[in-house]
Write a protein that binds this DNA or RNA. Structure first.
Lengths: 205, 205, 205, 205
DNA sequence: GATGAATGAGCGTTCATTCAT
DNA sequence: AATGAATGAACGCTCATTCAT
């Protein structure tokens, strides 16, 4: 009534719930339809198929999330603070959206279509937030020039993703994600080693 | 004849081939059986189901791989070299075993059983190789004491995993994995920032 | 504007095209609507359903065709010429209206409704053209009195129908339909045997 | 137990029953399976799909029927008697196998696969029985040399087929098929006209 | 141990038709 | 009359797994 695309939104919302609860493969389209209060066939007016629902959830939530991450980055002035802000935003999202996180970390990867045919732009866009941070830092001379932004963005994303997945899998979470965020930021910014000691020269004097 | 578990081995070998070629969900048990030269039913004398074949591949290849990674680590004397050796070993494996890498990076994750019920020890064992490196480095004072080994191992593994997945997905690989390995090692050892400059103080003099 | 039932006509025209191209079962009502430039629902203002479109095509084209066949028959003076004219008209129609022929010979028969519930008058009317020719011939003494017109009309129609179907199926038509028409007329008028020889008495003297 | 292909036969038998009762499109594979006392999936061990069941029924019953028709033809000595025997055999089959006749005359034609992709040999073989009769008659000089056997076989088959279809459709059969057979044989052998009268010369004296 | 014929649960998707506007 | 978004029934087929031999 009040919203355009009312049904589309309702379908997506219902799908997140069902996917998180049953898993992608066990989720029945009929159940999503029921949850959304539409007929089974109606779903196919808005989405090409079950995989596309999943991918749409990803794309659309990512769009929102990218905007938020972007804002968080902008609110920091220095590169290291920006990267730290990014990392925090990433893990905060996981912590604050457990259902979506379940879908992103676990269910999404079970869709062949997503893994092997995903051509959407949001993931790339998200990764580029990191890539651009690195590049910017290099221009400022804060980040080493030999760092390959295209690799660094994958490494940082991969680290966050893995930690996020563990957090989702271990429903009773041993570690605090906020603390983890800080540690991960430290690792990437300063490395795991004691800076005083030149690693090149070795640990011994 | 000459090998104990001849059939078991043949089944696993055939499965790797089929999984890599068709993907886990499109792989048919009958096709694996045919590739292994056994009857469909025979497979169930050795494995509980399709997922268990996949998981067995993982467990057994990981066992070999862990041994190799362990040896590589041992062959280095300093912690940083050990970590660097580990990272190289990981990405070398990916590079040198494209079929297995495809299975590990992509197909394995489509198995609900693996994702949600995996209880094998090999992944943990593998991650602990990293964890122990970190701990050892901390005991030596080379690695900062505030690093949480349980988190660091996930972060390092995640970074490698993500890079490996990209490498598998982009069949024509833009970047050289050996070079990537060095960069990743640098990132984790030294961080991405210029060490000389205290990040706390900011980028400007 | 200018035509009464403009839309109805456009729907039928579009339907012939789509049915001939895709076959009755693969033809989508939506596609017919699109072809006719009307909304899906509009079709149901003019026809009860998909089958009825098909049947309407048949009925209406048959009406035209019956008129033509009738005229052709009338233009001949003798019964045998009339029958020959009829047969020619039938096969000429097939030859000159390939799309309609495809629909009549192949698609129409896939409609359960048409096969099992058809109650229209046109087919009967058409068959009666033959039946009446036979009867007329009998009154004139030209056609044997023991011929059952109701059976003969089916036999003649069946022969023409089968030949027409073959012609439609074999897109590259081996045989010439005009020549076939003459042969069929001969067969029914004179029989396949050499008339000189009494068949009852056998072929040998 | 006692028969090889026990299941295959049971499936075909059940299918004839269900197809005749419900029609091809309304027949459910599950119902055929139930009727045959096998699991749904078992059907697909013997047939590629629903259409193939239908086509197999046709091919296999035709094989039997061709043998019988062949024998009937052989038992007659003269060409005209042979053709008459053939026609009788055809319509006797229809009369004596109402369920099969229903499937052959009505349901078979609703299968797109059968109509448009049928490549089996039985129909051709059957038609050739007639074609060869014609040819043989021509060699004996009993049948006019200008008759095209390839066309005559279609005409005769078409006539029989149409009459058979009517007989099946009108469950309460007005006319006797044995009598119809004789009439049809007469029509094709002697033509519908009074032989005494030269048609060329016209009907009037 | 080995076989492979048999099982049968499971479901995404289409599309003719309807009906509120 | 016309629209077109919404409906929802309907089902063939696959294939992992079992089990009698």
């Amino acid at each position: 009534m009040s919203f355009k695309n009312d049904k589309r939104t309702r379908i997506l919302r219902a799908a997140v719930k069902v996917f998180a609860q049953k898993g992608f493969y066990n989720a029945k389209v009929a159940e999503i339809a029921k949850g959304a209060g539409v007929a089974d066939g109606t779903i196919y007016l808005y989405f090409k198929g079950k995989d596309e629902i999943l991918i749409s959830i990803f794309e659309e939530e990512m769009a929102k999330f990218i905007a938020k991450a972007h804002a968080q980055i902008e609110s920091a002035s220095q590169i290291d603070h920006k990267l730290r802000a990014f990392i925090h935003t990433h893990l905060d999202f996981v912590k604050n959206n457990p259902k979506l996180a379940q879908v992103f970390q676990l269910e999404l990867r079970q869709s062949n279509k997503f893994i092997k045919e995903y051509t959407g732009s949001k993931l790339k866009e998200y990764l580029n937030l990191i890539g651009e941070l690195i590049s910017e830092g290099q221009r400022q001379g804060v980040i080493r020039a030999d760092i390959h932004p295209g690799l660094a963005k994958r490494a940082i994303f991969g680290a966050l993703d893995e930690v996020a997945t563990q957090w989702v899998l271990l429903k009773r979470n041993k570690y605090d994600l906020r603390q983890s965020a800080d540690q991960i930021a430290d690792m990437f910014l300063r490395g795991v080693t004691n800076n005083q000691t030149s690693m090149k020269g070795g640990a011994s004097p």
